[in-house]
């Protein structure tokens, strides 16, 4: 019994602290979008979306890369030059673990960059790409 508890703890510890691997919290967030999108997500589609130049949003923010830089591994910058932790899960292991926070940022940034809300598919692809990084 005792060894089972410690094994579970060890597994959880590895799952929660390993960089680059989605833990149950990230899975839950991705699954939420999967149920809405009713499609499989693609990391390559997510990468293309991340790098795409958009025209529908604010002129100052034509792309995700405007603030997040061209690599998810890099530290980004807010408009007042405050650092943004890298988007890649391997670099920032607590990313995409809170659906409320993920929705808040998709809401703000999709409106800024695309001038509209993102679809569940776009969000899921984006997350899948970032989680794979």
């Amino acid at each position: 019994m005792k060894s089972l508890t410690s094994t579970i703890c060890t597994v959880l510890l590895i799952v929660f602290t390993s960089p680059g691997f989605a833990g149950p919290q990230q899975d839950a967030v991705v699954n939420y979008y999967k149920e809405l999108a009713k499609r499989e997500f693609s990391a390559s589609r997510g990468e293309a979306f991340f790098r795409a130049k958009q025209t529908g949003g604010k002129p100052a923010t034509p792309s995700c890369t405007t603030c997040h830089t061209s690599s998810p591994m890099n530290t980004g910058k807010t408009r007042v030059n405050k650092p943004i932790a890298p988007m890649a899960l391997s670099k920032t292991p607590d990313r995409f673990s809170d659906l409320k926070k993920v929705e808040k940022w998709f809401g703000r940034n999709c409106r800024s960059v695309l001038g509209r809300e993102c679809t569940a598919l776009e969000k899921g692809d984006f997350l899948t790409f970032m989680i794979s990084q």
Partner: peptide
Amino acid sequence: FGEDASLD
């Protein structure tokens, strides 16, 4: 200040 910073 030009940014979308909306909160619930």
